[in-house]
Design a protein around this nucleic acid. Structure first.
Lengths: 233, 233
DNA sequence: CGGATCGTTGACAGGTATCAATGCTGGTGG
DNA sequence: CCACCAGCATTGATACCTGTCAACGATCCG
C-alpha cells in the first residue's frame, strides 16, 4: 500500500450550526455563544479513496471530524510492516492527539470517498477556556477511542483467522445503518487482523462460497446468524 | 486465572500535598485552592498480588492512581477466554471511564503488591467545574492510554511469538528505572501476546538458555542488544 | 511428606506464512 | 470498440510455526 497525497480541493468554510450531523460531532454541546468564539475558519475537505489526510511528520495544527466515508489509521513499523489500528466513521474525531501538542500518531488514510471538517486546534484551545461542555465531549471521544482499542485487541487479534474475519465482518456490518456495507480490500483486512493478504482472501472467498457473505466489488452483506455461530467456537 | 477479591485493608486518607509522587499523578497541576475543594476522602489502598481492584459489575464511583506496583487490565470474552489489554504503573490512572459515567471496561487485577490511591469521582466532577488544569491532565491520561493501545496492537499482536516475547521483554525492561524488572507468569505473558501459555514458556526458556534473558523467580534482566536484533527480522 | 501450582518439555496435528501462478476487472489509449 | 495493462483477488503447494494434549519437574506451603 502506497499512500498518496491529498488530491481533493478545499470546499470553503461551512456554518457548523447548519451542519446536518451537528448532534453527532465534537461541537454537539456548544452554545450559540461558543460558536461566536470560533475565529478561525473550519474547512470542509473532500478526500478521494486512498488519500492521506495527515501523517506523523505533518504540522499538528488541526483535528478532523468525519462527516461521511471512512478513515483508516495506519501504524507503520520501522521494518516496513504496518497495521491498521482503527477505522473512523461519521462523527468520529481524527488526530485528537494534536490537542495535547503531540505529533499525529499514525497515518490517516481515506478508505472511500470521504468528507471531513478540518478544525484548527487554536479554536479548540480558545473554547477550552470558556466551555466545559467541550471538555466533556472530548473526554467522551477519548473514551470511545480507548474502548474500541480494547475491542480490537481482543476481537481482532485472537482466535484463528476464520474467526477474526468473521468478527471483522460483523463489526463492519453493524457500523452501517444500511443492509450493505463497505468491504475493504484484502490487504487492508490483513492489516486489520494481523494476518496475511492471502489468508484474508482465502477466508473471504470461503465465506462467499458457503453464502455466509455476499459481495460484488466493494459492496457486501452478511448472514449474521452463520457468522455468530462461527465466532462462538 | 481466577481473580480473588480484595484482601488488603484501608490505610486511611493521606494528604495529597505531601505525596512523594505528586508531580506524576493526576493532581499534579492543582493549586492550593483546588485541594481545598476536595471534600471526599482519598484513601490509600494496599493490594496483595492477584487482588481484584475493580471489575465491570462494580459501582463506578472511583478512579484510581497507582503509587507503586502494577495492575493488569483484563478483558474477558464470553467464551471464557481473556486478554490482558494494558499494564498500569506508577502515576497511571485506572478506571478513568468512570468519569464519563461508564461501567469499568475490564477487570483490574494487581500483578504484584501494589499501592493505590482511591479517588471519588464526585471529587473530580466538582473540580472539573473549577479547574481547567485538571482537564488537561485528564486529556493527557487518555492520550497516553490511547497511544499505548496502538503500540500494543502493533508490537504485541504481530510477528511470530519469538518476536512478540522479545518486544514484551524490552517493554517491561524499559518501564523500570532499575536494571531488574518483574517477569510476569507465563500465563500472563500468553494473555498479553495472544499466544498460549506453553508457547510463552518455550520462548522464555529459550531466551534463558541462550543468555538473552536472565531470571530467577520473578526478577529478570535482559540483553537488550540481542533482543533488538531479534525484533528487526 | 503430600498436594497444589506453576514452569518446562515432547509429540503431533492443524493452521498459517510463504512463494508462485493464474484469474479477474476497470481504465487507458489506439 | 477492442486490446492491453496494472492492480487486485484467488488458488495451489509446501514448509514452518503454533496450538493442543500430555507428561514431568520445580517450588512452596501446610
Amino acid at each position: 500500500m502506497k499512500p498518496t497525497s491529498i488530491k481533493s480541493a478545499w470546499k470553503g468554510s461551512l456554518k457548523c450550526q447548519l451542519c446536518p450531523i451537528k448532534d453527532k460531532v465534537l461541537f454537539a454541546d456548544l452554545t450559540e455563544d461558543d460558536f461566536q468564539q470560533l475565529h478561525l475558519p473550519i474547512n470542509e475537505i473532500e478526500l478521494a479513496a486512498g488519500s492521506v489526510l495527515y501523517q506523523p511528520t505533518d504540522d499538528n495544527n488541526y483535528i478532523y471530524t468525519l462527516r461521511s466515508g471512512s478513515i483508516k489509521l495506519v501504524h507503520y513499523l520501522t521494518n516496513g510492516n504496518y497495521r491498521i489500528t482503527r477505522i473512523l466513521r461519521q462523527g468520529d474525531l481524527a488526530g485528537i492527539e494534536a490537542l495535547n501538542g503531540s505529533a499525529y500518531f499514525q497515518h490517516a488514510i481515506s478508505m472511500q470517498n470521504t468528507s471531513i471538517c478540518q478544525i484548527p486546534v487554536k479554536n479548540i484551545e480558545h473554547l477550552n477556556l470558556k466551555s466545559s461542555n467541550l471538555y466533556k465531549q472530548l473526554m467522551d471521544r477519548w473514551q470511545k477511542a480507548q474502548s474500541e482499542a480494547d475491542i480490537w485487541l481482543t476481537d481482532f487479534t485472537m482466535g484463528n483467522s476464520k474467526q477474526r474475519v468473521a468478527k471483522l465482518l460483523i463489526y463492519l456490518a453493524e457500523q452501517e445503518s444500511e443492509q450493505a456495507f463497505f468491504l475493504p480490500p484484502r490487504e487492508d483486512i490483513g492489516a486489520l487482523l494481523a494476518i496475511t493478504t492471502e489468508t484474508a482472501s482465502r477466508m473471504i472467498a470461503e465465506f462467499r462460497r458457503d453464502k455466509t457473505l455476499n459481495y460484488s466489488g466493494n459492496t457486501a452483506s452478511i448472514n449474521l446468524k452463520k457468522l455468530n455461530i462461527m465466532i462462538m467456537k
